[in-house]
Design a protein around this nucleic acid. Sequence first.
DNA 1: GATAGTAATAAGAATGATTCTAATTTTCCG
DNA 2: CGGAAAATTAGAATCATTCTTATTACTATC
Lengths: 139, 139
Amino acid sequence: MTTHGLQNQQTDIPEEINGLRMTRQRQEVYRFLMGERTHPTANEVFMRIKEALPHVSLATVYNCLEALVQHKIIRQVNFDREPSRYCPNLDEHGHFHDETTGTIHDVKFKPGINLTDILDLPPNTVIKDIEITLRGQLA
Amino acid sequence: MTTHGLQNQQTDIPEEINGLRMTRQRQEVYRFLMGERTHPTANEVFMRIKEALPHVSLATVYNCLEALVQHKIIRQVNFDREPSRYCPNLDEHGHFHDETTGTIHDVKFKPGINLTDILDLPPNTVIKDIEITLRGQLA
DNA sequence: GATAGTAATAAGAATGATTCTAATTTTCCG
DNA sequence: CGGAAAATTAGAATCATTCTTATTACTATC
């Protein structure tokens, strides 16, 4: 018996996104992030996808996350020096870290706001990425 | 012979700032940061103040930086997962990381702009800290 | 359909910024 | 002065992440 294409495709995720071949491991990482709004860490992703892929390694999770980030399929979010978190929301947005619960919430910009209009940037600046993070609490 | 007060005070830095006793080590860390606009890392601070305090330890530099940050005398700045950097500018501002040169520039907001006016925050949110970081290049 | 070349994965070791621990020194205050 | 508290030191420990090397999977070609 021979198989063609991917090892396993009981999935709704395409075989390629933004030029990145979606291997089974990348699919599981991506699927989990898509269904999860909690901005999990690499280790949390690892723990969770082990249910579907018991032999997956943490290094692979890191590799997958890096590949997905570089192909702009997900975003990496950093709070201070805590472990990186990952976010499937590609719209321009910030992150609010609620210190009381430890949860992270996406923060949209009010309509019509363009970040670069607000900042006093040096001329001829090409911005590749903006990260806005807030810390505080929901009173 | 007895000495009163601090071990050494050939300095222009007060003995206390924001309720933090400015020991000789904290003074040196702070003085260096004040004269430096390059947002140095803990290790860079360490290398430099060793000239004035040859027996200072890296742990002490970390302790001093933490104390200064907690007393809002300096700010800690993080870019992705790179080593933390430290900044004596307390005005609300962001940081632009020029990928070409590796340098970091403070970015002011245009006058009259209030960050929280722009963000679509949940009601009753108390913001303790905002961090805005940009990556890109000066063309 | 076999096969060679390339890419991805796995397991564990290595890295490196930061934090912790325990011992010593300095400062504060009665 | 003398004891308590705070700060400093040196080195060990931590832990997220990256690297290394071997194995496995995929792709294109014959």
